[in-house]
Structures are given as C-alpha cells and as structure tokens.
Amino acid sequence: MEWREEGIVLGVKRHGETSVIAELMTRSRGRHLGLVRGGRSRAMRAVLQPGNTVSVHWRARLDEHMGAFSLEPLTLRAGALMESAIGLHGVQLAASHLRLLAEREAHPRLYDGFLVLLDNLTGSGLTAGELMLRFELAILEELGYGLDLTRCAATGASADLVYVSPRSGRAVGREPGEPYKARLLALPDFMTARDLAADGAGLRTGFMLTRYFLARHVYEPRGIEEPLSRVSFVAAASE
C-alpha cells in the first residue's frame, strides 16, 4: 500500500535512536501518523517542524498499519512562525484543535483553512486572531457541534444578532434576547457582518463564545483541559 500527497507537519515523537513518528495533516487523508527513519538528523529536524508543508510518500504492507513516511520539504515557514508569540502559540493551538479529529478522516475544509491561517500568523495579530476564531468555529462544525449564527432562533431575522443561546448554539436578536440576556452568550458584531473587522475586545468576546462550546462539547466530555497555547494565543492576538 502507498500514496503520495502534500501534508503539514503537526508534530513529532522520538522513536528509537534515530527515527521519529511524524504527525501530519493532509487534505484527503486527514491527520496521519508515520515513521520517519533518520528523522532525528539535523537536516530532517529542520523539515519536521510544526507548520512546514512537505511532500509525503507513505508506504505500508497493509492499509491499517502506521507505515513509513518519506518526506521532502516544500514550504518551510516554521522559522518565521517561531519569531513571534502569535506565530508560535498559533501553530501549537491549531495543531491541538486538529488532534481533536479522528485519525485518517478527511477534512479538506479544515486543511485549506489551516493553510490560510498559517500564512497569516506572521502578520497582524487581529487578522490572525479572527482567522483562528473562524477556524475554531469550523472545528466545532466538523465535530458535529456547529453554531448557527446566520439568523435569530426566535424570529428568523438575520439582522441585529447580538447573542447566542448556550443550549442550542443559535444566534438570538437584540430585542427578543433582551429579557434573557443574563443567560445568553455575547456575539460580537464582526462575526456576523462581512464588512466589519475584529478589534481586541471583539476577539476576546468571540473566543469566550467558542471556548464555551469547546468546553461543553469537547474538553469536558473527553476529560481534557483547554490548551495553554489557546490562552497564550488569545492574549497575544487581542492585546
């Protein structure tokens, strides 16, 4: 069995004296592990850094085996990512989100979004923050817990949406939500208006929203904690 594709490095684990087990995100084969012989060499260490894009040749005797990777570098962006807190914590956070997915399950939308995110982690913190927030919304949707922020759950209107129901994950308009606002989650305006950019306060509110649903549907049921990289990234992107 074998296949060839491009992949993005999420991380590695030592295996023996000279090899590593690499974890990659691919577009059509999802999150995939493979043995890289000689992966601890100086040349390969530079390639096997989180955020780098590589050409992958996977081979195994049977499809269900972990198999081995042969890798060639394509885009080495890890060095630039490590130069800022946003880049460093951003690539770690995105990788932790992708690890919530089952192995070898294709998520092409997330792969494409991951590429866009990586290419913007070295620029504006607000831009990177907004892209990460939308990446978290996509993660929730791919896991089956997507939020409906397009229209009011009470009236069906698509304007003046300022709340989200913590029970249903659906948006609620200002007027129908006013009597219940103490029990609703805040929805920043840039998340529903295409012509508005995020600011620091809006980003913090948006990340509080996605954190609630990640904790409720993912972290708590699986018995895991919110990644420290998320706390650090939100602080860096919204300051």
Rank of each mutant, 00 (worst) to 15 (best):
L110F: 09
S124R: 10
L117T: 06
L140K: 11
Y145W: 08
A95L: 02
S124Y: 04
G125I: 00
Y145A: 00
G113P: 00
L81C: 06
G123K: 08
D112W: 00
L117M: 08
L131Q: 13
T127P: 00
L118R: 12
L117C: 12
E136G: 01
G90T: 03
A106I: 01
E83V: 01
H89S: 12
G123L: 03
R109G: 15
L147Q: 02
A85N: 12
E136R: 13
A80Q: 03
L137D: 07
Y145F: 13
E103D: 13
G125W: 07
Q92H: 12
S84K: 12
L93F: 09
Y111T: 02
M132W: 09
L115C: 10
G123R: 10
Y145D: 04
V91C: 06
V91P: 06
Q92G: 01
N120V: 00
L81G: 02
A85I: 02
G123T: 06
R104A: 01
G90R: 08
I86F: 02
P108C: 13
R109P: 04
R134E: 03
H107D: 06
L88R: 15
L131N: 05
L133Y: 11
M132N: 13
E130M: 04
R99D: 13
A95K: 12
H107A: 15
L143W: 07
A138T: 00
E141N: 11
F114A: 08
L118P: 15
E136P: 12
R109E: 15
R134F: 12
L126F: 15
R134L: 05
L133Q: 06
E141V: 00
I86Q: 05
L81D: 04
Y145L: 02
H89E: 13
G113H: 09
D112V: 00
L110M: 11
L131M: 14
G113R: 11
E141R: 15
L100P: 04
L133G: 09
A128V: 05
S124A: 01
S96D: 09
L143F: 05
F135N: 14
Q92T: 05
L110G: 01
V116T: 09
L81E: 03
L101E: 09
S96Y: 09
E136I: 03
A95H: 06
